[in-house]
Design a protein around this nucleic acid. Structure first.
Lengths: 75, 75
DNA sequence: ATGTGACTTTAAGTCCGTG
DNA sequence: TCACGGACTTAAAGTCACA
């Protein structure tokens, strides 16, 4: 798999998750708990160093009350 | 991670990838080659038994000439 | 041209801790 | 509350032979 140029996508995801999470007033721990995902993994997502699976994205989007597409769109 | 109810999403992805691929006149082999992904992995995605990462989705969307959101939307 | 099973390897994702 | 690391465990990524 070529990961190369698509890594900017992870940075985009990172920023969106962080801002959406803060908008809703959750800590990383809160979000992690509600998503049933490890808190350190949420931290990695928000730092752009995790490449989450579709089902993980789905869980995060659900708790943040947005669509998956909102997690990866540039605003 | 709770994978449970979100698995319908994989079925949605499956259908969309298959139809988008056919629309563009590609075989699984063609798509796989261009994505630099194994043919059998594309097969798994189209059968809804793979839970691809964001970067894999990104590669597939790129070759199918659509946005990632188009891969998971119900039409 | 595709589905499938049985793999091996890599990365996703966890857990426990520190500053 | 979060960044970050090390040592894990599990699942995704990727390969192969065959129907």
């Amino acid at each position: 798999m070529k990961t190369d140029r698509n890594k900017q996508l992870l940075g985009l995801l990172a920023k969106n998750v962080r801002s959406l999470r803060k908008n809703i007033g959750l800590s990383q721990e809160d979000l992690a708990f509600q998503c049933d995902i490890d808190r350190t993994y949420i931290s990695k997502v928000e730092r752009g160093i995790a490449n989450p699976s579709l089902l993980v994205l789905s869980r995060i989007a659900e708790i943040l009350q947005v669509e998956i597409k909102d997690l990866i769109k540039k605003k």
